[in-house]
Design a protein around this nucleic acid. Structure first.
Length: 790
DNA sequence: GAGCAACGTGTTTTT
DNA sequence: CACGTTGCTC
């Protein structure tokens, strides 16, 4: 069977496992997605399942799309109408189909994170709560955290006054959302969980329907998602969970790795298949990853191997400054490109976004095209959110979040005072802002009336228009385009608004083929008759001509409502320009799931990676280690790791020790491009054996990882020249008229007095290794550090 | 109601 | 440093 060709034994075992609960521990680069999609295809092809009876859940739209694409390549079936999508997408679909049972209006709007925060702030203001004592962001975390744990306000235990108040505010917020007919992201999950839990006919219907539930990235599930799956599987479905506990890097946002062990106990009962053969990386890279991750105490246990040979060692570089680190990376990338490598096969990874700037600067100056991932995404841009707010108001004028956003944007004489009055009146009426418009007195009141008429007028004028025409009309009639045209830097915003029209057209053409949405899976909303229809196993014509999930538009009444859902659930790509071959810059988190020929992992410093906020707790440190594991396993052939003695952070120069993770990697897999210095005590012996390496196993003491420095210490790239060097580096280097030599005593403004142990490089790259009396051995950029000869 | 200066606050991110 | 938010003034 061609479907199963070229699968290795464990892969084959996983794909062809007879339907039952199973846990697949899939290491990085072990063919996880392939196994998942081939399994689905195999189930269908062998008649063990119908497309209709499969449910596949992912975390990102991208992963869902990937799964669909691969599926359709394997089987000549129409994947449209299949329930393949993200947790949120599928919950949205469920809630639209059963909106009445779920207690939501059919056109409920989805609040993204920013909308939610705005909504919380509005609630706090209305309730007259001191937002210094109850910070909106903290409340947001509190609410989402509890929702993700499956807890409504009434379920939260509060043992102190503060928490009790937070619970009250949580409740108030939910009341407000309910009144406005909106749902935040975690609400989508909790609400659909509650729907299934409380409504037996609906639950049993879906339990009967879905015989096979497949879950991707299982290590990223949170408590509620786990319970949601458990509920759906309660009718005897076989759950096939694929994940990698070593790649669990989202605990900070509620993911519970423990779900994997829990699943093994509760469901799989020992049916665990490990995929350990890695098809991506060379041996040294895998050895390094394996050695590192073994320092974590809580693991299910798994070791990657490859038959591709050791390959190149990992190149380790210590820089004197972040600029120098960036410069080094840039030079290496130039030579990689010179060797004929594609820029897009090269990635630069960092722990936090702020680190990208220096690297960008170096690449930009050198004229190396690059692309930064992360940052603002299309549907999150201010101008886009404004336009969407108008569209939302046309759909539902009671959407207070949208109302607050654009009532006075562009400026139309509705000030904060007026809006406050309106909010007070609305609260008295226990209604929406819109419902209070007529009662606001004075000039502000008439401005509000004019605004609500504008919305009505837009709704009227766009009747019968196509979706993209509606959007086009709205960005003009709202005054947004005119407003941004008048702004100094508004040209890009106007372009984005035009792009929104295109996005609407594209959405409509993709969603265009669908009709009669509510009958999609044989369920007519609010009616058990429809459920019974489906239970009789009637052929469902819509499955053949259904929609491309995860767009999920088929359960949504109007094209506009569908588009708004789409905008909230799929925030879109963050890169405006595609196409050009460019070096890829992103955080390690963003790199998960990707792979590159050559990878640079930067900023391997205590306090940065591992991040200082994570070091104190064991669990935090282990997550950082998994993050490092993810970073390493992105590389196919070549891997660089770099760190820097000094780094500008938050406007201050900071001094970091090199990351403890470096000491956890096997010496034989690493090649130090700069001398590997140990702590002061180790250097003597290292010097004596003339090998610039200590054994690395005795990590430097990690007491106080960071020094802050008030007066910024700035060196300068003065004229510095290197002198004749043997393979041991130059004998002496001159900087600004002073000649530095090995063995010489020097003084440093910060580190005190010391002795030069070695010199490397020349020119602006010249580095000096100094053993200081007090702070141990440091490698400094000669051009940067102000050293005085003694 | 708009504009500007002072202040403070800085992980990781998808939906 | 670079951003957003707040608070003050015209």
């Amino acid at each position: 069977m061609s479907l199963l060709a070229n699968l290795n034994p464990p892969q084959l075992a996983a794909v062809t496992l007879e339907p039952r609960h199973a846990l697949v521990l899939a290491g990085a680069g072990s063919g996880k997605t392939r196994v998942l999609t081939t399994r689905m295809a195999w189930l269908i092809q062998t008649g063990r399942a119908t497309p209709h009876s499969l449910l596949a859940v992912t975390f990102t739209n991208k992963a869902a799309r990937e799964m669909l694409t691969r599926m359709s390549a394997m089987l000549p079936i129409n994947t449209r109408g299949m329930w393949i999508g993200t947790f949120h997408g599928l919950c949205n679909r469920l809630l639209r189909a059963h909106h009445r049972d779920a207690g939501l209006p059919q056109t409920f709007q989805i609040l993204d994170t920013a909308d939610q925060l705005a909504s919380i702030k509005r609630m706090l203001k209305a309730a007259n709560v001191d937002d210094e004592k109850y910070p909106p962001k903290q409340l947001q975390q509190f609410i989402n955290g509890n929702k993700e744990a499956g807890l409504r306000a009434g379920d939260v235990e509060a043992h102190d006054a503060f928490t009790r108040r937070m619970v009250e505010l949580y409740d108030l917020y939910d009341t407000q959302c309910q009144r406005e007919g909106v749902a935040d992201f975690s609400e989508l999950l909790l609400r659909s969980y509650e729907l299934l839990a409380r409504n037996a006919p609906i639950r049993e219907h879906y339990q009967r329907r879905f015989r096979h539930i497949l879950v991707d990235e299982f290590q990223d599930t949170n408590t509620l998602q786990y319970r949601w799956l458990k509920l759906l599987a309660g009718g005897g479905a076989a759950v096939f969970a694929v994940g990698d506990d070593d790649q669990s890097i989202y605990a900070f946002r509620g993911a519970n790795v423990g779900n994997m062990a829990e699943f093994e106990h509760e469901f799989a009962h020992g049916a665990v298949i490990k995929l350990e053969q890695n098809y991506r990386s060379h041996g040294h890279i895998l050895d390094t990853a394996n050695a590192l991750i073994q320092n974590n105490g809580t693991r299910l246990g798994k070791n990657l191997w490859t038959d591709q040979g050791h390959g190149e060692p990992i190149r380790v570089y210590e820089a004197g400054s972040d600029n120098q680190e960036a410069h080094f990376i840039m030079e290496e990338i130039r030579s990689l490109i010179g060797e004929g490598r594609l820029r897009s096969d090269i990635a630069i990874l960092y722990r936090s976004n702020a680190q990208s700037r220096v690297v960008e600067h170096a690449l930009f100056s050198a004229g190396v095209p690059y692309k930064v991932y992360g940052g603002l995404r299309f549907f999150e841009r201010q101008e886009i959110k404004h336009a969407l707010a108008y569209l939302r108001l046309m759909e539902n004028p009671h959407d207070d979040t949208a109302w607050m956003r654009v009532a006075n944007f562009p400026v139309r004489g509705i000030g904060a005072r007026t809006l406050e009055q309106q909010a007070d009146l609305a609260r008295e009426l226990n209604g929406s802002l819109y419902s209070a418009v007529a009662r606001v007195p004075g000039r502000g009141g008439s401005a509000l009336v004019r605004f609500s008429m504008l919305i009505d007028q837009m709704r009227f004028d766009t009747q019968g228009m196509q979706l993209h025409e509606v959007v086009e009309h709205v960005i003009e009639a709202s005054g947004l385009v005119t407003h941004y045209q008048g702004e100094r830097e508004g040209a890009e915003r106007v372009e984005n608004l035009r792009e929104l029209v295109n996005a609407a057209a594209a959405f409509a053409s993709e969603a265009g083929h669908m009709r009669d949405p509510d009958r999609q899976d044989g369920v007519i909303e609010g009616s058990t008759v429809g459920i019974n229809d489906a239970d009789q196993g009637l052929p469902d014509p819509e499955d053949e001509a259904g929609a491309l999930v995860p767009d999920l538009a088929q359960d949504i009444p109007s094209p506009l409502a569908g588009f708004l859902s789409h905008a909230a659930l799929e925030a879109g790509d963050n890169q405006a320009s595609a196409g050009q071959d460019a070096v890829q810059l992103m955080t390690v988190h963003a790199a998960k799931g990707l792979e590159f020929d050559a990878v640079f992992i930067t900023g391997l410093e205590e306090g940065l990676f591992p991040h200082e906020n994570s070091i104190l707790e064991q669990s935090g440190l282990e997550e950082e280690r998994r993050l490092m594991y993810v970073a390493i396993t992105r590389a196919r052939q070549r891997l660089y790791m770099s760190f820097s003695q000094t780094r500008m952070l938050h406007g201050q120069t900071r001094y970091h020790m090199r990351s403890r993770f470096l000491a956890e990697m096997p010496d034989e897999a690493l090649k130090w491009l700069t001398p590997k210095a140990g702590r002061a005590a180790d250097v003597g012996s290292a010097w004596a054996t003339s090998a610039w390496r200590d054994d690395g196993k005795s990590a430097p003491e990690q007491v106080g990882t960071t020094w802050h420095n008030r007066s910024r210490e700035q060196g300068y790239f003065g004229s510095s020249q290197g002198y004749s060097s043997s393979r041991n580096g130059p004998v002496g280097v001159e900087v600004g008229g002073t000649m530095f030599k090995v063995g010489q005593s020097v003084a440093h403004a910060r580190f005190g007095e010391g002795v030069i142990l070695a010199l490397t490089g020349s020119g602006t790259d010249a580095q000096v290794q100094v053993r200081f009396a007090d702070v141990g051995t440091k490698t400094l950029a000669l051009a940067m550090a102000k050293l005085t000869a003694l």
